[in-house]
Design a binder for these strands. Structure first.
Lengths: 240, 240
DNA sequence: CGTATTTTTGAAGCGATTCAATGGACGTGG
DNA sequence: CCACGTCCATTGAATCGCTTCAAAAATACG
């Protein structure tokens, strides 16, 4: 039974290149956790005691500011490590992890994982690369928020979601997450109203199709054009 | 001669708790680099081959977007590790490191440092914590840019600079970095004009004093009030 | 079939940007 | 030491992108 789980862990970045016995020991230190939609893996402000690898389901990581503004930091899919940065930094969780599709995860105790990292340095090396990579994503968002307009930020957020959680259908690429306008607004630092207006405008131009808590990108190429400030970002299709 | 350098490295987070021989081996793998104001330690887009620990001087890390917008990511002081995230992630430098006060640094080759981390796991563990901590700062900025108004962002940026590079004088806390309005604008995602207006308004209220490339915080408490949305953030002093 | 949630839309207002032009500080060379 | 050019900072006026508030429409759910 453990073998099928090792097969599960092997493709995950954090465990890349580990020997079977290391993987086995790591797995032995984990416990299985299930949580249904609406529940939380952890709450913002709690001491970061355990981190998770999502096996099934989807999780939204969001922060509430002192004034009550929500900020959606990101979404997690199967295979993603959740809360690992806070655990490694031995800090408090900076955000809350809400399960938005019934989830099934492996959980590690922070102190136990520290022990594992001591025994198997490859683990902490992998952790390092994971955190460094994730940090790059936040740097990108800082740049984005500091220099770009709302429309482009929304376009980029959608494209990110497409690459993380997109699923091809004949109608286009559907973002396979229950995604409200509110979520998109909180990801891009704008309001529900602006997101709604933007999506409607794009829908009229045939770039996306949207329904309640669901967005389908029908013309990814033109979305990229908007996101990257290539010529022809507004109005009629270029060169037509 | 190496002993004085080990004393230099010891208080640095990355080398915390390392034995003398480890520190010695680490030091042996480094080389000394000097760079005067106006020069660059590295440029955005180059493969991240080496990282630095600043011994003396000051460095500004900034990114230029495809459209030519500059974004100042942060400043570095003596003791800070520069470029380490990109090196550990084996990526390209996401930003350029410009020396703004004559600098003197220790440099490590990425591959050499990887070898050191393999031999001395404590190094990669420390690196992990360093990167995790730094990532938290970027998460904070994402939240800030997504939810807060310009005036508050500028206040927060100043307070951050005060804690990183502040020096007490009898006139207040002077930020010990050549800091133009442009820099502040590029740190907070706004324009020179807005920064200038904001600083003059604050100067009229006695919160800061500013000169060319120089800002002194005369009333840190009231700056905190602005940064944190406590009562009395605008207009007359509270309870007067 | 009614209620709650999500989404849309309109209109008003403001914060911040943009552009243009002036003013002041600094360094340099005569 | 003053004159000059350069860089940096300020200020005003116009504009605009986006928010805000209010209300209705659409969709899901019990």
């Amino acid at each position: 039974m453990a073998t099928e789980l090792t097969a599960l862990l092997r493709p995950i970045d954090l465990f890349r290149g580990l020997d079977d016995d290391v993987l086995g020991a790591t797995l032995a230190a984990s416990r299985r956790v299930a949580c249904q939609a609406g529940g939380f893996l952890f709450h913002q402000g709690e001491p970061a005691a355990t981190f998770y690898i999502l096996v099934h389901g989807r999780v939204r990581l969001s922060h509430v500011t002192a004034e009550g503004h929500q900020v959606v930091m990101r979404f997690f899919n199967a295979g993603d490590a959740i809360g690992i940065v806070a655990v490694l930094a031995q800090a408090r969780y900076p955000a809350s992890a809400e399960v938005i599709e019934d989830a099934d995860a492996l959980a590690w105790d922070g102190s136990a994982f520290n022990g594992l990292m001591e025994r198997f340095p490859a683990l902490s090396y992998n952790g390092l690369k994971l955190v460094a990579h994730r940090m790059g994503e936040y740097q990108d968002r800082v740049r984005e928020l500091a220099t770009e307009r709302v429309e482009r930020r929304i376009a980029r957020a959608l494209l990110r979601l497409v690459s993380q959680s997109g699923r091809r259908t004949d109608a286009g690429i559907v973002i396979d997450i229950p995604l409200s306008r509110q979520d998109l607004a909180e990801m891009t630092g704008t309001t529900v109203y602006t997101v709604s207006r933007t999506l409607t405008a794009w829908e009229e131009r045939g770039i996306v199709r949207s329904a309640r808590k669901r967005v389908t990108v029908t013309d990814p190429h033109r979305l990229v054009v908007i996101a990257e400030d290539l010529p022809g970002a507004s109005g009629a299709p270029p060169d037509a």
